[in-house]
């Protein structure tokens, strides 16, 4: 009896596999069911939520507590993207892990430039686009221009517009709903931008050093100068030699603050700050990274308060 069972094992195995294969993920578009949207990072997820409100279920892959460049997507992320109606990302090379993730998902409409892949860099005026052939001698990342464009709140105007257009396209029944939510958001954004500009009016023309080259759009918005980073090149960890360079640099430049998100080494920043007599300020890169940064507006409230105080 036992030997018959063992002989038949490969066939039983075959049947089991067939059975499991037949259990397909259901992705039915019921009219009242909210759209399933997966964003790469929390700020994008929040913008989608602002436009989609009750008509969307949105989640972010990357935890705001981690460096967005080096996330390792989990099998649960693969599952969520497999079932998603829309994948929202920064494009460029912000999420270097995005292509392998989408390949593991294997749905062509979610691939780069696919109709269900929303690339939020479209329409954004990019900064630091390389004007020469680049090699990795210049660092690991930012091959297509600086991808940290969500740090300028002005860019949310374009992103929200693009999001609302996409939602209208895939869910035309609720087109006016998305349009209305986007209008409300943009109205609020106008008021907040005026508020932030006046809060940080004293920052114009001042210089800061950031840990990673992720602050240029933020600096651009405020009229700050941010030419130097603790990293000698994007993605290359700080070295003693580069520290020395920065110390010499600040002798000829008035640097008032060193800024970094929560996931880089604050002690490294403090070491330099002490030597050059600057303050260290946390500037979050994502919604939810620090307490009280739960949505787009509170996130920027937090960041502008931080920079305003540091440059007081």
């Amino acid at each position: 009896m036992k030997s018959i069972m063992i002989k038949r094992l490969p066939y039983l195995f075959f049947l089991g596999v067939l059975f499991l294969f037949s259990m397909s993920p259901e992705r039915v578009m019921a009219a009242e069911k909210p759209l399933e949207i997966v964003a790469t990072q929390a700020l994008f997820a929040d913008l989608v939520k602002q436009v989609g409100q009750d008509k969307v279920d949105v989640r972010a892959i990357a935890s705001p507590k981690f460096n967005i460049h080096f996330i390792q997507p989990r099998p649960s992320d693969v599952r969520d993207v497999t079932q998603a109606d829309l994948y929202v990302n920064a494009g460029l090379d912000l999420e270097a892990w995005s292509d392998p993730l989408l390949e593991a998902v294997g749905r062509p409409q979610l691939f780069r430039r696919g109709e269900r892949n929303l690339d939020l860099s479209s329409g954004i005026r990019l900064l630091k686009v390389p004007d020469h052939p680049v090699t990795r001698a210049e660092g690991d990342i930012h091959l297509f221009g600086n991808p940290h464009f969500q740090m300028n709140p002005e860019n949310a105007r374009i992103m929200v517009r693009v999001i609302s257009e996409k939602l209208k396209e895939i869910d035309p029944v609720n087109a006016s709903y998305y349009e209305e939510n986007a209008k409300v958001f943009l109205g609020r954004l106008d008021r907040k931008i005026a508020e932030w500009k006046s809060l940080c009016a004293h920052c114009v023309g001042k210089e800061i050093i950031s840990y990673h080259d992720d602050i240029v759009y933020f600096a651009d918005f405020l009229g700050l100068k941010a030419d130097q980073e603790l990293e000698p090149k994007p993605g290359i960890p700080p070295t003693p030699k580069h520290f020395q360079f920065l110390e010499d640099y600040v002798k000829e430049h008035q640097v008032k603050a060193i800024v970094l998100p929560t996931y880089f080494s604050r002690s490294t920043a403090e070491k330099l700050a002490k030597r050059i007599g600057a303050k260290v300020a946390t500037i979050c890169q994502n919604v939810g990274e620090a307490p009280g940064t739960d949505d787009f507006f509170s996130f920027f409230d937090y960041n502008f308060k931080q920079i305003s105080e540091a440059l007081q």
Partner: peptide, 12 residues
């Protein structure tokens, strides 16, 4: 991906 409900993800 095998569709057995959340919270466990299965891939075959």
């Amino acid at each position: 991906m095998v569709n057995i409900p959340w919270p466990i993800t299965h891939q075959l």
